[in-house]
Computed example of a mutant assay.
Amino acid sequence: MKPCVEAFHDPRTSTMTYVVYETDGSPCAVVDAVLDYEPHAGRLSTRSADRVIRFVTEHRLQVEWLLETHAHADHISAAAYLRGKLGGKIAIGEHIGAVQTVFERIFNLDPSAQAGPAPFDHLFVDGETFRVGAFEGRVMHVPGHTPADVAYVFDGMAFMGDTLFMPDVGTARCDFPGGDARKLYESIGKLLSLPPRTRLFACHDYPPEGRETRWEATVAEQRAANIHVRDGVTLEQFVAMRTARDATLGQPALIIPSIQLNIRAGVLPAAEGNGVRYLKLPLDAF
């Protein structure tokens, strides 16, 4: 039996959250959960995360893992919120430390000043295996978009974060601190070396006009049709394309609130003396 996958699409951030499980009543993992944020009001809500909670509750699932593929720059992680409601361990790749170092400096954050539980319960190393009930997962380090990206590989499927999008959209940007187009090409090669029928699940979809949202494609489909990195595209061609394209991209709309929370697994800062929590807005830093 292969794992079941339930996908939850957040249209505001074009993000996909996944629940991976065996059957009703079994253990499960949640991948890349979303906490809603209204930037004009500075207001958080839990609409998207509560959809996941309802599914988990209705199917009597027990959350073992809250898996993050990387520190996202386009949405706030709901991992800490879900941990408080459903339990489970928040995990990410061990190279998150490099990302934390860069952004703790930009936001002038005190790495020793944490609110509540430790941000991440577990840091995965490349090749590490873990269990979700009867299923074994394997961690694949896939740097390039950021230094800390990982994919979670199960039997016949992989959750690959932002490394690849749908074939008609292409690949992730590489212009964040520590990003590297050469490394991304190598990481994509690792994913596309999986068996051809492996289902690859993306964290986002930005569909061209006229196409409905999609979130999975097989290795074979990516190798045949990905507009950036299909079979036959060389490393030099990819790096030239990615470098030129990244130079035209603006910053993600939610990068400032997202990054300073996501490098801490979505754990919110402590309330100040007036009972209000605050995020920082660095000027001329991005």
Results as ranks from 00 to 15, higher is better:
residue 261 L to V: 04
residue 193 S to A: 13
residue 260 Q to V: 04
residue 145 H to M: 10
residue 164 L to F: 10
residue 15 T to D: 03
residue 161 G to W: 05
residue 51 R to E: 02
residue 219 V to A: 14
residue 168 D to C: 07
residue 5 V to C: 14
residue 132 V to L: 12
residue 36 D to Y: 00
residue 218 T to L: 09
residue 117 P to D: 07
residue 202 A to M: 12
residue 120 F to C: 06
residue 167 P to G: 15
residue 146 T to M: 15
residue 195 P to S: 15
residue 118 A to G: 06
residue 234 T to M: 02
residue 143 P to Y: 05
residue 146 T to A: 11
residue 176 F to E: 11
residue 275 G to C: 04
residue 280 K to W: 03
residue 43 R to G: 02
residue 222 Q to S: 10
residue 52 V to E: 03
residue 150 V to N: 07
residue 57 T to A: 04
residue 272 E to T: 08
residue 114 Q to A: 10
residue 170 G to W: 01
residue 16 M to P: 02
residue 85 K to G: 11
residue 11 P to E: 02
residue 266 G to I: 08
residue 172 A to K: 03
residue 75 H to A: 06
residue 90 I to N: 07
residue 51 R to K: 03
residue 276 V to T: 15
residue 93 G to S: 03
residue 85 K to A: 11
residue 85 K to R: 14
residue 266 G to A: 07
residue 285 A to H: 08
residue 159 F to V: 11
residue 250 G to F: 01
residue 229 V to A: 12
residue 218 T to Q: 08
residue 21 Y to K: 13
residue 120 F to D: 08
residue 126 D to M: 11
residue 114 Q to W: 13
residue 237 Q to S: 01
residue 138 R to Q: 02
residue 128 E to M: 06
residue 251 Q to S: 06
residue 122 H to F: 10
residue 196 P to T: 12
residue 1 M to A: 13
residue 45 S to Y: 02
residue 81 Y to S: 00
residue 161 G to F: 07
residue 233 V to E: 02
residue 255 I to H: 02
residue 143 P to K: 08
residue 163 T to I: 13
residue 174 C to D: 06
residue 180 D to I: 07
residue 179 G to P: 15
residue 169 V to I: 12
residue 189 G to S: 13
residue 219 V to F: 12
residue 242 R to H: 01
residue 48 S to E: 03
residue 265 A to D: 03
residue 237 Q to H: 03
residue 53 I to G: 01
residue 66 L to R: 00
residue 146 T to D: 09
residue 60 R to I: 09
residue 233 V to C: 00
residue 76 I to Y: 02
residue 93 G to Y: 02
residue 119 P to G: 09
residue 219 V to M: 13
residue 264 R to M: 01
residue 238 F to M: 04
residue 44 L to V: 10
residue 36 D to A: 13
residue 43 R to Y: 07
residue 55 F to T: 13
residue 283 L to I: 14
residue 214 R to C: 06
residue 282 P to D: 05
residue 137 G to Y: 06
residue 260 Q to N: 02
residue 96 I to W: 00
residue 232 G to V: 10
residue 185 Y to W: 08
residue 284 D to G: 08
residue 131 R to T: 14
residue 77 S to G: 14
residue 179 G to L: 10
residue 4 C to T: 15
residue 256 I to V: 09
residue 157 M to Y: 06
residue 89 K to F: 05
residue 17 T to A: 12
residue 62 Q to H: 01
residue 11 P to F: 03
residue 222 Q to L: 12
residue 175 D to W: 14
residue 87 G to F: 11
residue 74 D to W: 00
residue 180 D to L: 09
residue 269 P to C: 06
residue 273 G to F: 03
residue 82 L to A: 07
residue 69 T to S: 06
residue 65 W to Y: 00
residue 84 G to C: 11
residue 173 R to K: 10
